[in-house]
Design a protein around this nucleic acid. Structure first.
Length: 784
DNA sequence: GTTCCTCGAGATCC
DNA sequence: CTCGAGGAAC
């Protein structure tokens, strides 16, 4: 007998609240996400069936809400900086050289110390007494964790001696010593308490306890490594002397810190510590070098939020060994068959890794990975798991060499490889269910038609049960179709349909939402529409260019392929791919069906006046890639013949009279001997005339302040989304690119910026922080 | 040769 | 969100 709904609702709410609290506040998730979702769904359905039992504080009433206000915010008087990273000796040498050059000083002295893997905090002392402690947060402000910091015995509550400044901020790292971490977990295991995932999370989670009594039981330690605000007192002239002073005042300072000289000194320290790494009582992920004297530091200054006088030299990414349990093939939207290694789950630098891409067959061959092999994995750039190499000693003697399957695991079509290409492709195209599903998923994705709620699961069912075979079918779906589909899917899976509300009928809300989302997606832009079609080589950027340059779907869809080359960054390959797509009657039919299904492109406009450049017969002839027809020959022909038709009607000696050498004229005749080419030239000529009629005359274009600049965004911006930032920058004439090169004008670095920021620093490219970006946008009318 | 875009991938966060 | 491979454009 199941419990009464009111009791069950109560129980669920308590479970969910508990899970939420442990997740958000304790940094110690108790249940898996899927379990959480399941409980929430159950509660949601129960509440739907009993609306009178819904209360404002039910977890369903604040889904995704983050508990806030647990800790007060503290603004750091002096921001807590982040550090640039070096991963190689060469980068360290560059760092040292930049300092030598700028300060015009040989072999400067550095203070070197281990970089602990813990949590950066700031401690404030007034008149020698500990008054406030805060986490680093975003560097500008953090959380007030004073009460918790007080419980750490390594944090002095009262400074020793009497020569300390009236106001002193000390920065350092809270961490959990390895031995204490191990002891704590052993005890927790025995007593059935919660086990900490790793020392770093242990330290972070402990500091964010709302109840300081819990923090007190955690074995936390602390090292001081820097000083922030100083008032009413004076510090020594060097960092190393300051560390000594801090020690006198009662702060623990790493015993490993040292003063070294020049690049040799830095690298020597790195190797000494690297050799000791395993014996240290705490985790470190690298070492930090700081120019020792403060005068030099001041002179070096800052780039963005990182000082130019300090750098973190990271140890190589952590590697782990595991076993390849299987090598699966994934079929992508374009049919690309990507091998994927299924790994025995293993912890690598803090996360559990169970899959690793092998990119392509060549990669597997290079590594010679075989099923059952023991392999070394690491996280590339500390993010993407990758297989570094195989451990040959552990290979079974009879393990066969892996080869790419010859047939698609989904549709059975042949898997083939284009001459000279690296990727293998399933040749099934849209007869392959995997490719169809991926195509639909791409069409519905946020950056394409943005059909919210059409996730993998529904696509799977809609496709498998035959409701949707082309993307146009989405716009024929009715509420009844969806409900029927769900019923059939439930029958197939043997699942019970969810029961809804008062009517006692099957739940329908999801279907209503999906129908609404499909309806909303009908109004779209040309750029999104073109991208959504999933034409090979046409990603967001190319779709946008096409939309800007041609402005009109009806123009585009009947354009012969050479004309697409008029768009910058579109060359023969891409143009042909677009032409090939449009040549297929099935694709034209899909476009017709989409329009008939109510899709409306809202931003149709005449072609860009810039298109006028090169909108002539000579350029068309060049773009057609006719053998032997160079720019010069094309110009001669265009001078002699006013139109494509005239050219077509002329005999071969007509081309010779136009100035062409005999063999070139002959090549042209031969080329025109192919009917398809004749049609292409004819269609090209007609398209020229059409475009000529609708393209406005070129006009002077107002230049934006960032015209011609390439900008790269990285990290998370807090006050506006990436898309937003991109649009505004583009409105000012900038080109927003995805990767940093020496042509990049400047890089906008938000929080948690990754390798792009490193690359920018390496290349010495200007770096803007969010504040600078906002100020710039504002001063150019793109604020707010 | 350089630079950029496309495409596919995995993990984390919610 | 980020990374890496590959390939297209210039």
């Amino acid at each position: 007998m199941s419990p009464k709904p009111a009791e069950r609702i109560d129980q669920l709410r308590r479970q969910l609240d508990d899970a939420n609290y442990r997740y958000h506040v304790l940094d110690d998730p108790a249940i898996a996400d899927a379990e959480y979702d399941r409980l929430l769904r159950e509660l949601d359905e129960l509440e739907a069936a009993h609306p009178e039992l819904v209360t404002p504080d039910s977890p369903t009433q604040r889904v995704g809400a983050v508990p806030s206000g647990a800790f007060a915010e503290v603004r750091h008087a002096i921001p807590m900086l982040s550090l640039g990273n070096a991963f190689s000796d060469a980068e360290v040498a560059d760092f040292e050289r930049r300092i030598e050059e700028k300060l015009d000083r040989r072999q400067p002295a550095f203070s070197a110390e281990p970089k602990l893997d813990g949590l950066a905090i700031s401690l404030r002392y007034e008149n020698g007494r500990f008054v406030q402690g805060a986490t680093r947060g975003d560097g500008a402000s953090g959380e007030d964790v004073t009460a918790n910091l007080r419980t750490i015995k390594a944090v002095p509550l009262q400074l020793r001696g009497d020569d300390w400044p009236k106001v002193l901020e000390v920065r350092g790292e809270v961490y959990m010593p390895l031995a204490a971490f191990k002891r704590y977990n052993e005890r927790a295991l025995k007593e059935g308490g919660k086990v900490l995932a790793n020392p770093r999370n242990g330290a972070a989670g402990s500091l964010r306890q709302l109840d300081p009594r819990i923090t007190a039981q955690r074995p936390l330690a602390f090292y001081a490594y820097a000083v922030g605000l100083v008032e009413g007192g004076k510090l020594p002239d060097t960092h190393s002397a300051t560390l000594k002073k801090l020690r006198e005042w009662g702060f623990p300072v790493s015993a490993e810190s040292d003063v070294v000289v020049g690049t040799e000194g830095l690298l020597g320290y790195y190797r000494r510590l690297g050799a000791k790494r395993d014996q240290l009582p705490f985790d470190i992920d690298g070492v930090v070098y700081k120019l020792d004297d403060y005068a030099g530091q001041r002179e070096m200054g800052f780039v963005s939020r990182a000082p130019r006088w300090a750098i973190a030299h990271k140890f190589p990414a952590q590697e782990q060994s595991t076993v390849v349990e299987a090598i699966d093939i994934n079929i992508g939207r374009t049919g690309a068959a990507t091998p994927l290694a299924r790994l025995k789950p293993v912890q690598v630098s803090g996360v559990v890794v169970s899959n690793a891409t092998l990119h392509n067959a060549d990669q597997i061959a290079r590594l010679d990975v075989r099923i059952g092999d023991t392999v070394i994995v690491r996280r590339a750039g500390d993010v993407i798991p990758e297989i570094v190499r195989v451990v040959p000693e552990y290979r079974a003697p009879d393990a066969p060499v892996w080869t790419m399957p010859t047939q698609c695991p989904v549709c059975g079509s042949e898997i083939v490889r284009e001459e000279g290409e690296a990727v293998w492709r399933c040749s099934g195209e849209l007869t392959c269910a995997a490719q169809r599903k991926e195509a639909i998923g791409h069409f519905a994705s946020r950056r394409a038609m943005d059909i919210d709620g059409l996730g993998d699961r529904y696509i799977e069912d809609l496709s498998d049960l035959g409701y949707v075979t082309s993307v146009a079918d989405l716009y024929k779906l009715t509420l009844e179709d969806l409900l029927l589909m769900k019923r059939r899917a439930d029958e197939r899976d043997g699942t019970t349909p969810a029961i809804a509300a008062k009517t006692g009928k099957v739940a329908t809300k999801w279907a209503e939402n999906l129908v609404d989302a499909i309806e909303r997606s009908r109004r779209t832009t040309l750029e999104r529409f073109l991208y959504a079609l999933g034409i090979q080589h046409v990603g967001e950027s190319t779709a946008k260019s096409l939309a800007i340059w041609f402005g009109d779907l009806e123009v585009i869809r009947h354009l012969p392929w050479p004309l697409f080359k008029r768009v910058p960054d579109v060359g023969g390959e891409v143009a042909r791919a677009i032409g090939h797509f449009l040549d297929q009657s099935g694709n034209q039919q899909v476009i017709d069906d989409l329009l008939a299904g109510g899709v409306v492109i809202t931003d149709t406009h005449p072609p860009s006046s810039r298109l006028r450049d090169g909108l002539d017969l000579a350029t068309l002839l060049v773009d057609l890639e006719i053998p032997k027809i160079t720019r010069i020959r094309a110009d001669q022909l265009a001078t002699a013949f006013p139109t494509a038709t005239a050219l077509l009607d002329a005999p071969e000696h007509g081309y010779i009279s136009a100035g062409l050498p005999a063999d070139t004229a002959h090549a042209l005749t031969a080329w025109l001997g192919d009917d398809a080419n004749t049609r292409l030239l004819k269609a090209g000529g007609e398209a020229l005339a059409r475009l000529d009629a609708i393209t406005p005359a070129a006009s002077a274009v107002a230049l934006g302040p960032l015209d011609g600049q390439t900008v790269v965004l990285t990290g998370t911006l807090s006050s506006l989304s990436r898309d937003d930032a991109r649009e505004r920058l583009e409105a000012l004439g900038a080109k927003v690119a995805g990767s940093v090169s020496k042509k990049t004008g400047f890089v906008v670095a938000g929080e948690a910026a990754g390798s792009k920021l490193d690359k920018a620093q390496e290349l010495g490219i200007e770096i803007w922080d969010e504040a600078k970006l906002l100020a710039f946008l504002k001063s150019h009318g793109q604020g707010g």
